[in-house]
Write a protein that binds this DNA or RNA. Structure first.
Lengths: 346, 346
DNA sequence: AGCCGGCAGTTAACCGGTAAAGCTCAGATT
DNA sequence: AATCTGAGCTTTACCGGTTAACTGCCGGCT
């Protein structure tokens, strides 16, 4: 009710409890040095006055903060569209919330801005640690941030993340499994619609894809790198399907592009899965509600995010024991994959 | 490269530039009191040393912060599933990023925790302002937070948000339009699957729905309140369709439940839209990729989020000029709505 | 000459905590 | 009796900025 926002500080609590600021601080941080009786009196006064320590002030003098930072270098629009992010973030949040931590989120335009932001956040004691995502090959964040001493966990394959503890899925194995599966269905021309070339996990998948295709003696594979959104997924699919020797199966790097691809197939008069098999990645709900449903390389993105947050807490606490690999995406066959046209049942 | 993280502070910059801390502060805040020459020298030194003011320290002494807070009182899982949130958040971020602001995000279990959190954030100068969502009727946040003097924008109808500047969509008109549309198609038994009863906008929609049904002389309408997720949407749909006088059209409060509802209809052997019309809300991509595509009350959630952020900046700056209504959701007819079974084309 | 005004800076207090060092005094030790 | 100990606080110095008040100095006006 009081419209005058006089802030109550530790000094008020101390005065009212008849002790010094220091005693209040000790009491609230559960450190020895105050008697049980005094501690309780202090807590009672604090409750009465509605006081809780100011996180800002605390982080200035001590080093404790209850915030972790996440900068995303992607266009805002895409963020809202792709199910992956929110699921990932919700996984992070589920762990943070348990420990009364918040997530500081910011969109940046490029990696330089991202580097500057993390430096600022860390220097200013804004965050206890950071989550780094979307690693490139020779990512500039590795040299720029590694000297900082900032606790961080990197989402990506250890070959990309430098000295940062990594949490990753074994994309190479998953790609291999995907290609093997399609090959077993008789497909000999398999294409792949991936993310941007410079993105580390895209490159890893591309290499694994090419290797597996060669290993199985399939026809030379076409791979297209895109920007992850539906428009680019559709465009890439169109390109692939218009080629003289169009593929009989396409693997996508996320689910949104696969859905778009299904649309393109329909628009071009191709029946999925009879004329064309499609295999999505990430496997959000999207895959289950299309018609036909989309087969996908599925992994639990929510859990992935949670694991990332858990590792970050370990790193911050200094109890980190090494990189974590979360389960490899596994194939969920649904309605969008079938034996290749003309091929007998394998 | 230096593994010793000696933080460079304003003092270092001052010393190196041969001036006092105060001068550096003045220069960096573009306040009068330093000559152009000195200002430039200070900036040069700052760049050389890689210094930028610490947001934490600044927010302690002055009142400036570049963070806005958002607490969400929903289960983490749902966050990842429902497209609405991420789209909304991405809209917010798109505006924040323009102004080098970050979003402080936290999941809470209940409104008491949310209230405590906002108090803590505000008291501790953690945030410049807050975004309040999911208003209940007689929302406890109104009395608890209004005395704080914390700049905030409320996402919800002004009848719910007390003294907080509101940004909202005209749900009542949208519901009316939806019911009128279905009635015009000949539907006389229309049901609604809404959100939780205690959620303000659910109540508003429920009332508008009942009113319009009565006004048009339709049969008494069945409405079910749920928890917004797919399981509950499916369950509610099943309940409605198993009733003796099952509806010929159902309106949903979001898209996820509508999609689930379509699944249930199929499972029960009903053809959409011939036997049953479905109308979704929010209209994310989900609605466009199902089969049949879902008609929806569509609004631009991304833009909604952006508008909320813009209003918040106005409120923080003290230049706020009144609540903002963003465009009313409008009907996008797609493949899931058709004339009622037995009814001639209207 | 004396005074005023304003620019360009400096000083010092303060924001709200934490943490190390210091103080006091009761009870145990020698 | 003198000294040591440790529990229980208080004092004080930060953390890294901002800001109000103050100082010095130069030029212009009366």
């Amino acid at each position: 009710m009081s419209s005058s926002p006089e802030r109550v500080t530790i000094k008020d609590v101390a005065a009212r409890a008849g002790v010094s600021k220091g005693a209040v601080s000790l009491a609230f941080n559960h450190k020895p040095g105050v008697s049980e009786a005094t501690r309780e009196r202090i807590f009672a006064v604090a409750r009465e006055l509605g006081w809780a320590p100011s996180a800002t002030a605390r982080s200035l003098s001590s080093r404790r903060v209850d915030i972790v930072g996440l900068a995303l270098c992607r266009p805002a629009r895409l963020l809202g569209l792709e199910p992956f992010y929110m699921d990932f973030i919700s996984g992070i949040e589920s762990v943070l919330a348990e420990r009364s931590c918040s997530l500081l989120l910011r969109l940046v335009r490029d990696l330089d801005e991202e580097i500057a932001l993390y430096k600022e956040w860390w220097r200013g004691r804004m965050i206890a640690g950071a989550i780094l995502v979307d690693f490139r090959q020779d990512d500039p964040r590795v040299p720029s941030l590694q000297g900082l001493g900032m606790p961080a966990v990197a989402v990506g394959h250890p070959s990309l993340t430098g000295p940062f503890p990594a949490v990753w899925t074994d994309d190479a194995s998953a790609v291999t499994e995907a290609v093997r599966y399609l090959a077993a269905l008789g497909h000999r021309r398999i294409a792949r619609v991936g993310g941007p070339h410079d993105l580390g996990h895209s490159a890893i998948r591309a290499r694994a894809f090419a290797d597996t295709v060669q290993e199985l003696g399939l026809e030379e594979a076409r791979q297209i790198g895109t920007g992850f959104d539906e428009k680019e997924g559709a465009r890439a699919t169109r390109t692939l399907l218009l080629a003289a020797d169009r593929p009989t199966a396409i693997v996508y790097d996320n689910d949104i592009m696969a859905v778009a691809g299904a649309g393109v197939a329909a628009e071009m008069g191709l029946t999925v899965p009879d004329d064309l098999s499609l295999l999505a990645w990430d496997d959000s709900q999207l895959c289950r509600i299309t018609h036909p449903t989309l087969s996908a390389m599925s992994h639990d993105v929510h859990h992935f995010g949670a694991e990332v947050a858990r590792v970050l807490f370990d790193v911050v606490a200094g109890t980190h024991t090494g990189g974590h690999q979360v389960p490899t995406p596994s194939l969920i066959p649904r309605g969008s994959t079938a034996p290749a046209p003309g091929a007998g049942p394998s």
